[in-house]
């Protein structure tokens, strides 16, 4: 029986994690996996910390991922990677966009943004795969393509060919954005 793979996509409301999970779900289902994708809509989306769980394997029961169970955390922002680090399985990997977005308690001065938080995780043996996805997204043509840059990076860890991902982009993205998103995906994959 194939072991389940657990992927968390985390970020700040409005960063486009919904499209990332849609693409990933699409790829996984095409590969014949049982898939569950859970997200939370509503209040938390308004600039808050947002989490999507993607689980795949022969048979997936729970729609969510618990502490110590994630194989991958794909984070759209540094602090969010650290916030959810305890969800990571020992030996799991964090793929993180190095962008910093101050949360309101930092903006108001009630809290401090922990600048070296990725180094802390590395020192504890967490595999941290960091990239400046925002710059790569700009290079691809839109700052909104951070999601595709990160999916490109994640694709390195899966045994599926590039064509599988690229055709999934064609099937999930509005036609006029397909080329830009493919470019962003490849920039993330090859960066």
């Amino acid at each position: 029986m194939m072991k389940n793979t657990n992927i968390m996509i985390v970020g700040v409301g409005g960063q486009g994690s919904l499209l990332a999970s849609k693409l990933l779900g699409h790829v996984l289902i095409k590969q014949g996996c049982d898939v569950k994708v859970s997200e939370v809509h509503g209040m938390s989306q308004r600039g808050g910390s947002v989490v999507t769980y993607v689980r795949c394997g022969d048979k997936v029961y729970s729609p969510i991922i618990s502490e110590g169970e994630a194989d991958f955390i794909v984070s759209f922002e540094k602090l969010e990677a650290a916030r959810h680090a305890s969800m990571l399985k020992i030996g799991g990997a964090v793929i993180v966009n190095t962008q910093q977005i101050d949360p309101m308690p930092v903006i108001t001065g009630a809290a401090v943004y922990p600048e070296n938080v990725l180094e802390e995780l590395k020192s504890k043996g967490v595999k941290v795969d960091e990239l400046d996805a925002l710059s790569l997204a700009k290079e691809a043509g839109s700052i909104k393509a951070v999601n595709l840059v990160l999916m490109g990076r994640l694709s390195r860890y899966f045994p599926y060919g590039e064509d599988v991902w690229l055709s999934a982009i064609e099937e999930t993205v509005a036609p006029k954005f397909v080329e830009m998103n493919k470019k962003a995906f490849l920039l993330g994959k090859n960066a």
């Binding site: 938390s44 308004r46 600039g47 650290a82 020992i90 949360p103 309101m104 922990p114 504890k124």
Partner: peptide
């Protein structure tokens, strides 16, 4: 039973939802 976990040492500021 519980799964083993790792976490950062620095306190992580909350990120409550905000008006856009």
């Amino acid at each position: 039973k519980e799964e083993a976990t790792v976490s950062a040492d620095s306190p992580i500021p909350g990120r409550p939802p905000v008006m856009c």
